[in-house]
């Protein structure tokens, strides 16, 4: 049976207390919420934090407040099940609800949290393997080694961001609140990520992601399309989030398109966005925007399916996401 390594476990009951523990422990400590990402990684020896700081007993960072009219505040420890089935989310942010309900499995959504999904470790099938397997390939730069086996000439790790919520929250203009003993700050979700499979998150080890802020619903429409092999369990091998703000006459005032699972961070398809602005969402426009978006996608051979097909699907799925937003 795969088992967890030993660790010291803290269960603070307030963000302040958690922050103090983290500040005191330095880089030795890891924050854990649902554990569905961290614990498998620990069992496989990717991460061996001597200290865990659990956020499960901090009541203040669980739950959803606000209304679609004013925007929502989502506690980072809100379970994905709770988030995906919350009436305000379903009514005002249906695309988010559907993205959330596409994550993994119903059981894992009972356990995993929105904060955990946003902070999800980057994935690569040279990395998400047991210690013994990784030893057989002499390890990789993300863990215990020095080379990227996906592209041995690469200086950075190419593990991919596999969050289903990140691209949509980035496109929606969601914000993350981060708290540490040094103070608190708000960061646009789109700025939460780095294009680096190892240093993928703009969150310091002593910071706690406490809540996610959603802008008011209305005035925009959104869609999320996910590509994966099976109807559950699987991480996306491609995620396309599209959000459009339209004028009364149907012309697009603003557009945000993010692709995920094709790089170490959600990628904003800026050229596609520019191409959409000022135009109506007709077949021609959609096709052009999708082509531009797909140019950003440079999948590498570290996930399910072949890379040529995944790249081609970036176009098809962007088209489909935009088609979802036709009147």
């Amino acid at each position: 049976m795969m088992r967890l390594p030993k660790f010291v476990y803290h269960a603070p009951t307030s963000v302040d207390e958690a922050g103090r523990i983290l500040a005191g422990e330095g880089t030795a400590a890891r924050v854990v919420a649902g554990g569905t990402d961290l614990y498998p990684n620990m069992k496989r020896g990717h991460q061996l934090p001597p200290v865990l700081v659990s956020l499960r007993r901090i009541p203040k960072i669980t739950g959803i407040s606000g209304t679609p009219e004013t925007g929502l505040r989502i506690g980072a420890c809100t379970s994905l099940t709770q988030l995906g089935s919350h009436p305000a989310v379903k009514s005002g942010y249906a695309a988010l609800a559907s993205a959330v309900l596409s994550i993994s499995t119903p059981i894992l959504r009972n356990m995993g949290t929105i904060g955990g999904n946003l902070c999800l470790d980057t994935r690569c099938n040279y990395y998400n393997q047991n210690y013994e397997w990784r030893r057989a390939i002499h390890f990789c730069m993300k863990c215990d080694g020095s080379i990227c086996w996906v592209a041995p000439s690469s200086k950075t790790c190419l593990a991919i961001n596999s969050s289903d919520t990140a691209p949509l929250l980035a496109a929606l203009g969601g914000r993350a609140r981060l708290i540490s003993t040094r103070g608190e700050r708000e960061l646009a979700i789109k700025d939460l990520y780095n294009l680096d499979g190892i240093d993928y998150l703009n969150k310091r080890p002593d910071e706690i992601l406490t809540e996610i802020l959603l802008p008011p619903a209305g005035g925009w429409i959104a869609s999320y399309r996910k590509l994966r092999r099976r109807g559950s369990f699987d991480f996306p091998v491609l995620g396309v989030a599209a959000v459009l703000w339209k004028e009364p006459d149907g012309r697009i005032r603003d557009a945000k398109i993010y692709l995920n699972a094709v790089a170490s961070a959600p990628l904003e398809a800026k050229e596609a966005e520019t191409c959409l602005v000022g135009r109506k969402l007709d077949t021609e426009t959609i096709r052009e925007a999708a082509r531009l978006a797909a140019e950003m996608a440079k999948p590498v051979d570290n996930a399910d399916f072949g890379i040529a097909w995944r790249k081609r699907m970036a176009r098809v799925f962007t088209e489909r996401a935009l088609n979802d937003l036709k009147e």
Binding site: L4, Y9, G35, T36, T81, P106
Partner: peptide, 9 residues
């Protein structure tokens, strides 16, 4: 609630 006992302490 269904929970995976392998991933909860």
């Amino acid at each position: 609630q269904p929970i995976l006992s392998c991933l909860i302490l």
